[in-house]
Amino acid sequence: MSHHPDVPQTGFVTPLWVKRRYSISNSTMYAWISRNYLPRPCRIGPRAVRFRVQDIREFEARLSMHHEGSLNALQSSRFV
């Protein structure tokens, strides 16, 4: 499994996929969600959530529009 997987064309990705893509911990992922850095995941079952690929693509597009190093800036604001 690739450490930085490519974004699928459509569908959903798991929280684990998101954490691996951005090299962040679980607590950082949820902190980013609460701060509106990351889009909120969709609940697909009583104990399961997924992120819409379209939301992830829009998130990455916003990052690249604001600043090429924005993802690095977000990663340096990690809690863990």
Score class of each variant (00 low, 15 high):
G69L: 08
R43G: 13
H66N: 12
R43E: 14
R52E: 13
M1W: 12
S27T: 09
E68N: 06
D6L: 09
R21W: 01
R52N: 11
G11E: 09
S2K: 15
S34G: 03
Y30H: 14
W17M: 13
Q54G: 00
M29T: 09
H3T: 15
T28I: 05
D6E: 10
P46V: 01
A61D: 07
V80F: 08
D55V: 09
W32Y: 11
G11H: 07
L16V: 13
M65P: 01
P15A: 04
L71T: 01
V80L: 11
R35C: 07
K19Y: 03
N72E: 15
M29F: 06
Y22H: 07
P46G: 10
V49W: 10
H67S: 15
T28Q: 11
P41E: 06
H3F: 09
P15Y: 05
R35K: 15
V7P: 06
P8V: 05
H4P: 02
P46M: 09
Q75S: 10
S2P: 13
A48W: 02
L16R: 15
F59N: 03
R43Q: 10
K19N: 11
M65F: 14
R21I: 01
R78F: 13
V49P: 04
P5F: 09
H4Q: 12
W32Q: 05
N36P: 01
R43P: 05
T14F: 03
W17A: 08
P8F: 05
I24R: 00
V18G: 02
L63M: 14
H4L: 12
R50N: 03
Y22V: 08
D6C: 07
S70H: 02
I44F: 04
S27P: 04
M1T: 11
Y37G: 00
R62H: 13
Y22T: 08
W17L: 12
Q54P: 00
M65A: 12
Y30S: 10
S34I: 02
E68F: 04
P8L: 08
L38C: 04
S27V: 06
A61F: 12
R35V: 00
R21L: 13
D55Y: 03
V18Y: 01
Y37C: 02
Q54K: 05
A73G: 02
R57F: 02
P46T: 04
F12W: 14
P8R: 05
Q75D: 13
A73H: 01
E68Y: 11
R52D: 08
L63K: 06
F59H: 10
V53L: 10
N72R: 15
W17N: 14
R62V: 00
I56D: 08
V18A: 09
G45A: 07
R78D: 14
R78I: 06
S27W: 06
I33K: 00
F51K: 04
P39C: 10
L71G: 03
S34H: 02
S76L: 08
N26M: 04
N26K: 05
Q75F: 04
I33L: 01
V49Y: 07
K19T: 06
R43I: 08
S27N: 14
F12S: 13
F12M: 13
Q9R: 13
S76T: 05
V49G: 05
R43D: 08
W17I: 02
P8Q: 05
T28R: 01
